[in-house]
Write a protein that binds this DNA or RNA. Sequence first.
DNA 1: AGAGCCATGTAAGAGGTTACATGATTAG
DNA 2: CTAATCATGTAACCTCTTACATGGCTCT
Lengths: 203, 203
Amino acid sequence: MSRPPATKASSEPVDEQPGSYALLGLIEQAGGSSHGYSLLQEFVPGKPLADIIQLNPSMLYHLLKRLAAREWIVIEQTAGGAPRSRQRCRITPAGRDELTRWIRTPVAHTRELRLEFLVKLAVARMICPDLEPDLVDEQITLCHSWRDSMVVELEQLGEKPESSAGFKPLVLSLRLNQTESACRWLEDLLPQRTLSRGRERAG
Amino acid sequence: MSRPPATKASSEPVDEQPGSYALLGLIEQAGGSSHGYSLLQEFVPGKPLADIIQLNPSMLYHLLKRLAAREWIVIEQTAGGAPRSRQRCRITPAGRDELTRWIRTPVAHTRELRLEFLVKLAVARMICPDLEPDLVDEQITLCHSWRDSMVVELEQLGEKPESSAGFKPLVLSLRLNQTESACRWLEDLLPQRTLSRGRERAG
DNA sequence: AGAGCCATGTAAGAGGTTACATGATTAG
DNA sequence: CTAATCATGTAACCTCTTACATGGCTCT
């Protein structure tokens, strides 16, 4: 499970998937330790995280093992006798470091906003609400830089007439559209930090 | 990817992935038969399809076998002696039917526009350019219906104040934004059909 | 006694990715 | 001779999903 994907020079640490960090965040929020089943309860309909991501039991326990393999948590069996007793998951200092590192790192693609960025946001609200404005700001900055470089790229494509034969302009303009609307969505997120409640803006 | 993982009733026909249809379309365009390596050449940088989707050799031959298993193509070995001789892939009538069915079916999610819809468009331009306007029109209609139902859903969420605690409105407004920008992008595609003799852009 | 929740998993299987194997022919 | 290109794959490994196994406990 050491996870050297053998492909990307193995120097990059390679993030876990959002679900793993959601779990890490829930454990941290619970005071640094929790157990599988109570974590599972946070993913039933009605709980905030369930609006963003769903985790079934199999996946949850699987992810917990991966977290343990990375030494971001330790898993202790609490009862000795019963074959399937409650297990206690405790976050390690390394896990805490990794969690805050991950929260503060903006997502690298527009498509990751829906799942990964929202999980970051939700976890930040749970364990470090003060970070939320920074988190949104940095994501906005990054999104703007994507947009700017795509605009440049599109202009360059427009200069060479042979490029209009291919689908590059179409692909780029779609991605540009999506990125621009993502920027607007992120910017709409900002006012919410000053409005404590009551103001709904539908669209 | 977005495929219902096979244990689900197995009565649904379940589309192949876009790459499979790209191959089917290339074979059809080549007069109904082609072979692996020359299909591979259509995915090297510079070829139109390469702007949309990339296929490595492993995946390409894997997909060809799947197409053969579905009896959408038949694979014949042409040379008898050599261990790895050229193989000929010929599209079957069922394959042709499936290809046109797939082309005419709009994609079911906004996220599939980038890859699957563009492959449909590219394949349509190759083998049935007259269909392109319909293809775009139908996708626009569908996109609009998504947008409308999301607007309704957001309004309903706005009526129940307890929902503002969760992330549902955020998720929905992001998806609505993305869908709206997808609609605009699709609409931008339409004027191109008035330049319907599109062969001039090759030079 | 049976239903249902608590609690934790294993098994099976689909799908995809990368690295690598194989052997022919052609070009420098 | 060596390298590249032609041409087709296999092997190993990863992820995620669904179905199901396992037992204790509690409530009716």
